[in-house]
C-alpha cells in the first residue's frame, strides 16, 4: 500500500488490523504522533486527515490509502517552526512534551473549524463564533495534558488565532 503523509508517498504493508497511529510510528518511522491510550480517550495521537483532526488510534490504516495525511512532522520542524509551534515554546504550552504534537495538530484543525464558523457547546451565538478563552478550552478538551499546561496552551493558541 501507499500512504501520502506530509506530501510524501510512503510504501508500507501494514497488518490489516493496524491503526493509522501504529503505521505512522512503527512502519513509517514518524514517531512524532504519540500513543497515550490507544482508545481515543487522550488525544495524543491527533493528526489531520484531509484537513480534519482525528484520533489516529481509532482508525485502521488500510482505510487511508488515498487520503492526505498531515502529522506534526509536516506542520513544522525544530529549525523551522510553524507559528503555533513557536507559540507553544514561547508560552510554555507543554511540560513533558508527550501530548504536545497532538495538541498542536488539534489546534491547527480547531482553528480551521472556527474559520468555517462551526459552533461549539459553549458558543453564545451559534451563527457567529468568537474565539475567546472558554471557546479554546472547550474545543481543546479532547487533548489531555497531565502536566496541565492548559492555561499556557490557551495563551499560545490565542496569540496565533489573534494574529
Amino acid at each position: 500500500m501507499h500512504f501520502t503523509i506530509n506530501g510524501t508517498v510512503h510504501e508500507a504493508e501494514p497488518d490489516i488490523r493496524a491503526s493509522l497511529l501504529d503505521v505512522l510510528r512503527e512502519h513509517v518511522g514518524l514517531t512524532g504522533t504519540k500513543k497515550g491510550c490507544d482508545r481515543g480517550q487522550c488525544g495524543a495521537c491527533t493528526i489531520l486527515v484531509n484537513g480534519r483532526r482525528i484520533n489516529s488510534c481509532l482508525t485502521l490504516a488500510v482505510m487511508h490509502q488515498d487520503d492526505d495525511i498531515l502529522t506534526i512532522e509536516g506542520i513544522g520542524s525544530a529549525d523551522n517552526l510553524h507559528p503555533l509551534q513557536a507559540a507553544f515554546v514561547k508560552h510554555d504550552g507543554y511540560q513533558c512534551g508527550y501530548c504536545t504534537p497532538g495538541q498542536i495538530c488539534s489546534a491547527v484543525g480547531m482553528l480551521d473549524e472556527v474559520k468555517k464558523g462551526w459552533a461549539s457547546h459553549v458558543s453564545a451565538d451559534l451563527d457567529s463564533v468568537t474565539l475567546d478563552g472558554p471557546e479554546i478550552s472547550e474545543r481543546m478538551s479532547g487533548n489531555l495534558c497531565r502536566c496541565s499546561a492548559y492555561p499556557n496552551i490557551v495563551d499560545a493558541i490565542s496569540e496565533v488565532a489573534g494574529a
Binding site: G76, Q85, T100
Partner: peptide
C-alpha cells in the same frame, strides 16, 4: 524558553 522546546513541539 525551554531549550528542548523546539524538539518537543516538532515531535522530534
Amino acid at each position: 524558553d525551554r531549550v528542548d522546546g523546539p524538539l518537543k513541539v516538532s515531535g522530534s
